[in-house]
Design a protein around this nucleic acid. Structure first.
Lengths: 334, 334
DNA sequence: CTGTTAGCGCGTTCAC
DNA sequence: GTGAACGCGCTAACAG
């Protein structure tokens, strides 16, 4: 039952292995009838190509690597889901690794991935200076940055237009009458943080609103508990902001908790807006206004871009740099 | 730089490839000095073993498959994180697939995994009768069930003691003075549903409390919106329960929403208890009392069990069947 | 302790 | 249009 090789089907179909190979891989130079026969025999025998033999011979392994900073972050798990679906459609397998937003983990994850004879790599980089990514560029392993990019590094990436998203969110807050709008930012080494900050500042400026330093919390937080701590402090500042725009929904959940503990009603006393639109944002007692990122699509597009590159559909010299459009989702927290 | 093979290092160290292989794989029968020399040369040349060649030759691929029903469910992403950490420690790679709780997807995912020449498979099965798992048993691929198991199927699994967890949760509710406690159950094809129901019933019986049919909602829900609908109905029943014990936190989130809409204060008018302890449960306006499952540990233990089996540390005839202990986490919703 | 030999399953020349 | 032979990088017998 097991271990049906090309030889078995060659024997059964009374042809050579070469011919079988041609039939199986849709190569030219083969009679249509023999091809059909081979295919049917292969099916009958329930033949499965041995990826290892194939990979060894042809250095084309139909396997993609995915490095993500934190799979327990619902943003990334949604992205991964998109990656998985897109890769599966083209019969690519996924090798997965988690770096916990740690530099050392990223370094070693990349090393591991380099060992894997992958066709390509999808990676959400952690890192200030992009050194690991720079190293990666030295390699000939095709890779696409996932949701983050480096301004000073020419690479493929699929990300979102976060300046725009943040601008819209901030402007929405302003239109609702807020003037003292704080921004609870993520780590500055993430491109999204910079962009969201920029969008926030632009919107404030466009509406002639001042942005004192005290409005910007630069705590490099990415987690709920981090958001909680940071928001607690923001709230205690004077003048107290009437709204907090958060780097992410995950972080915003922490902010909501902080507001509740401080006895602030949302949105009456404090508006809160997030980013990403993770599924839990609708579950809050006050459903969260947020900027939706098409997460599955982000993952799928990145995977497709990578597979295109691997397949040689992209020119060697140009880079695939996609920006997905965000969408403001107004709920009840603002 | 690239493509350093064992031959290169054999040449450089002036030994045979076999010796290199022995050194690299910690095999016996090798001089300590030559071994050290080889290792240093390998390091110097930045040698990376070709997994495909190795896998082809030795049918030992250092790769594990993971099939999960829904990676965007925070319960599973936490589990996956544990799997990843444990596998990484032993230099195993992970191939990942998502089935979306669909039978067809599971079937095809297993087929794909069978193609992959994996060493073993971790799987969260979806399915009433365990047919796909039965098929899997026919294969000689070692596998461990992840968080779910089948009563009538002898397999390896790592799960939790849910009878106990549910018992504790229910008893806690009783001790808080509740008598009319409803149980909002999950799909009956999941082992956890059966166990949690059993624990609930046992606790009720132990305290001489009746369990009319109207207290049990058997809607096969796994989602928040499902929990919402089911809870809405439960609440409207008469006599109205004073407490709802939910199959999972995810479902409980929906129940909380339903309570809010019905104008019921938690816990004054209605107590709600969940299961799993996903990280969002602390973010509710009323932090959720729940039964914690050690999710990372669950993943890690399952991965370790599988790797032990693969390594031949386990007897062929016996099954690894682990049950982790749950922990009641009392917050403010009860 | 070490080296020689022989494949693992497949794709790819090159002949026919 | 088809097949024979070779080798991808590595490990597993066997000899020495």
């Amino acid at each position: 039952m097991d271990k049906v090789t090309m030889e078995d089907i060659a024997e059964r179909a009374d042809v050579s292995m070469t011919t079988v190979s041609r039939a199986l891989n849709n190569k030219p130079d083969i009679d249509d009838q023999t091809k059909r026969k081979i295919l049917s025999v292969a099916d009958e025998l329930n033949y499965r190509p041995n990826r290892f033999a194939k990979g060894l011979r042809s250095s084309n392994t139909s396997t993609l690597g995915v490095i993500v900073t934190d799979i327990s972050n619902p943003f990334f798990s949604a992205v991964l889901k998109g990656v998985e679906a897109a890769a599966g459609k083209q019969d690519y397998s996924l090798i997965f690794e988690d770096t916990d937003e740690s530099y050392d983990m990223e370094q070693s994850a990349i090393q591991t991935m380099l060992n894997e004879q992958l066709d390509g790599l999808l990676i959400t980089p952690i890192q200030t200076n992009g050194k690991t990514i720079l190293d990666l560029k030295q390699t000939n392993l095709p890779f696409v940055l996932l949701g983050r990019y480096f301004e000073d590094l020419e690479t493929n990436y699929v990300a979102t237009n976060d300046v725009k998203g943040a601008y819209q969110a901030t402007e929405h807050l302003i239109e609702r009458g807020n003037e003292k709008i704080a921004f609870l930012n993520g780590p500055n080494y993430i491109s999204s943080s910079k962009e969201r900050l920029e969008g926030y500042q632009k919107a404030m400026k466009a509406h002639d609103l001042p942005v004192p330093d005290s409005f910007i919390a630069d705590k490099s937080v990415t987690t709920m508990s981090g958001g909680y701590e940071a928001a607690k402090e923001l709230i205690s500042r004077s003048p107290r902001p009437t709204a907090i725009f958060c780097f992410s929904d995950f972080v915003a959940l922490g902010a909501v908790k902080a507001a509740r503990e401080a006895g602030l009603k949302i949105p009456q006393n404090l508006s809160v807006v997030g980013y990403d639109d993770i599924c839990f944002s609708t579950c809050l007692e006050v459903p969260l206004t947020t900027v939706r990122i098409p997460k599955r699509e982000l993952g799928a597009k990145a995977a497709n871009a990578l597979m295109d590159i691997v397949a040689g559909n992209e020119s060697e010299d140009s880079f695939t740099q996609l920006r997905l459009e965000p969408e403001l989702i107004i709920r009840e927290s603002s």
